[in-house]
């Protein structure tokens, strides 16, 4: 198992500014065009730009889409990604409906569904994550350190509360 297999996506909505660079990167990598319709990750925008959420396949450990797909087209890759086998998919969208976030996206070329493949073999980091390197809203981190990293961020915020300025004697 390479270290990439142990990685998971972590989203911090607070950091997303809706720049959609991730969508561009994704569509460009897989279709050679920059178009949100061709992207497997999409940004949901709420309010007057006060909340942007990157929505994409969570690659569940026990994916519901695999269980409900009538064509058995949803498959788990060795790197943990859950993707659609286009030879089997008939575009019935069952995977979209069962998905807690409605992640699968229709492939505008074939009409079949598609989800994040983590830029499978050829990229060091998924391109959307690379595109988000400035905002860091989207990170692709080792699963083993994710909790610790979040804990550290939170602890940094709490530190001030716990550590009152020193009272001079």
């Amino acid at each position: 198992m390479s270290s990439k297999d142990q990685k998971i996506f972590v989203v911090d909505e607070r950091k997303c500014d809706g720049c959609r660079e991730c969508e561009k990167a994704c569509s460009h990598k897989h279709f050679g065009v920059c178009s949100p319709r061709h992207s497997r990750i999409r940004i949901e925008a709420f309010g007057d730009g006060d909340l942007f959420v990157p929505v994409f396949c969570q690659a569940c450990g026990d994916p519901l889409c695999i269980k409900v797909c009538p064509m058995n087209a949803r498959i788990e890759l060795a790197n943990g990604a859950v993707v659609t086998d286009e030879d089997r998919c008939i575009g019935c969208r069952t995977c979209v409906y069962i998905c807690p976030v409605g992640a699968p996206v229709e492939n505008p070329v074939s009409g079949k569904l598609m989800t994040c493949d983590r830029c499978a073999e050829d990229e060091e980091l998924p391109l959307c994550v690379q595109a988000c390197s400035k905002q860091q809203a989207l990170r692709f981190v080792d699963a083993r350190v994710v909790a610790r990293t979040t804990a550290r961020e939170c602890a940094a915020r709490l530190k001030a509360a716990y550590k009152p300025p020193k009272v001079p004697e």
Partner: peptide, 10 residues
């Protein structure tokens, strides 16, 4: 609407 039905199932 169907595409977001997962939210309501949740």
């Amino acid at each position: 609407y169907a595409d977001s039905i997962g939210l309501f199932m949740g």
